[in-house]
Write a protein that binds this DNA or RNA. Sequence first.
DNA 1: CACGACACCTGCCGGC
DNA 2: TGCCGGCAGGTGTCGT
Length: 262
Amino acid sequence: MPELPEVETVVRDLRAEVEGRSVVAVPHAASSVFRYPSPEALAAALPGASFAAVRRSGKYIHCVLARDGAAEVESEALIVHLGMTGHLEVCDAAAPERPHTHLRALLDDGRELRFADARRFGRVMLGDPDALRAARLIPALGVEPLGEEFTVQRLDALLRRTTRTVKAALLDQRGVAGLRRQALTLAAGVVAGSVVEVLRIAIRNRGSTIDDYRDLWDAKGNHQEELRVYGRGGLPCLACGTVLRRTVVAGRATTYCPVCQR
DNA sequence: CACGACACCTGCCGGC
DNA sequence: TGCCGGCAGGTGTCGT
């Protein structure tokens, strides 16, 4: 399940591969992952556009497009959310199509940008991000946790005005975009510092491959090796040896040490 | 506003 | 060996 560190890894790699490239054709576009416009309309509109920039917004990937000869600068982006099992790759156009491939975009260097998603929880959209947001096709995300605006004050205000658990608050993408994992009832300063540190380390480790996540080259991330609690229910706590417990918080499986994490 | 329930969707896993 | 129910989980929607 791609989280912010995994998405950031994909964005950085994608940026190096497609920035400056343009789309020549769309040999394949079909599936329910296309929320707007229809896959046919997207396939018709994408050719001729070039990738001006690749950015991350929460867990959304924005490929900002540019068009030659367009007098006025129009804001247009190919937006991708990986959902649970979404996967982007840039490969030779002759490479065999992996199962559940929903989009293939032929680039001007002979390669293809492809999107595959077995579970189809992912989304692909094309349009003005502001307009898509206004149309509620993409959500109005909260503070970017790796941005300057993610301050202790902002987080403190966010946590202070709610009775929800810290985990539930952090999971809500309208508050702080792109976060999950557990947190405890700690001072906002500690949480804020931890969030940023953990995200930076996870990105340095190219994300966590818990199940399906692979980068553009189909390689696994490395950060799963660093997780000390996640997925270790029933195993001893690495700090004190107590058996880690599993429970459900905010509708999500949550593992914790009953001694170290109270 | 907070949160549970459900929908979407398919691979995987345990049980029979 | 094989079928099958159950489960996971990001996000949106709807009901309480």
